[in-house]
Design a protein around this nucleic acid. Structure first.
Lengths: 112, 112
DNA sequence: ACTATAGTTAGGTCAATACCTAAGTATAAG
DNA sequence: CTTATACTTAGGTATTGACCTAACTATAGT
């Protein structure tokens, strides 16, 4: 199959978990250490760190260790890629749907 | 953890696979039957159908059987939700990044 | 030096995912 | 009525994902 490691795949995969999305939301407000990020979650630290690794492998975040503290921060580029993919797809099919609006509406109505 | 079945989770999960994204691209151009959708892929039909099930469970597509042919088509709403989540996050952190641009640039430069 | 803190590594369990083959059902075509 | 087509169901394997506990390393504080 297509090498399951292209950007879209790893980014969407990273986003497909509520814990990881919550981490991103936290980081979108401010950089934070592992401990700060982990604190809201009822999860063993090693388990939580796997999520951080997935996020970092996807390129959505970056980290840096200073002394014994590792600080994470957001990296916007890959997210923009994912968003672009979605926007592109959606624009194509919404143009289509406009043309066939009545037809689609009818279809949706018989699936209540 | 958060019920792993909220909309964002299932939508991102559905998008986290190249086969499924290719199916969505196909469907964004036109509705299609199972056979038409499967044809480009070197995969047993039952395996392929699992992908269609994941897509339909996520709400990204809908299907309808007429005679012995099941036709799939795109359903735009959930995609828009995912896109909104991304856009919202990104706008928050890009505002932040503007403020700290020099700092972030410096950080990125020592990770070549 | 000693102890606490912050994170890391090792290794194990359990469930879910992504595949497969083989055999079935329902409709259409001859 | 018979056969081909279009999907569906059943059931099996192998890998990956999400979690855990226990034990370790490195730095900071006393």
């Amino acid at each position: 199959m297509a090498a399951a490691s292209d950007t879209s795949t790893t980014v969407f995969r990273a986003l497909a978990d509520p814990t990881r999305r919550a981490v991103l939301e936290h980081l979108s407000r401010a950089p934070a250490s592992v401990g700060e990020l982990a604190q809201p979650f009822d999860m063993a630290l090693p388990s939580f760190m796997q999520h951080l690794k997935v996020l970092e492998a996807s390129g959505l975040v970056r980290s840096r260790k200073t002394g014994r503290v590792r600080t994470y921060r957001i990296a916007p580029a890959p997210l923009r890629d994912a968003e672009d993919w979605l926007a592109r797809q959606r624009s194509v099919w919404e143009r289509r749907l406009d043309q066939f609006d009545a037809y689609v509406t009818a279809l949706q109505e018989d699936r209540p």
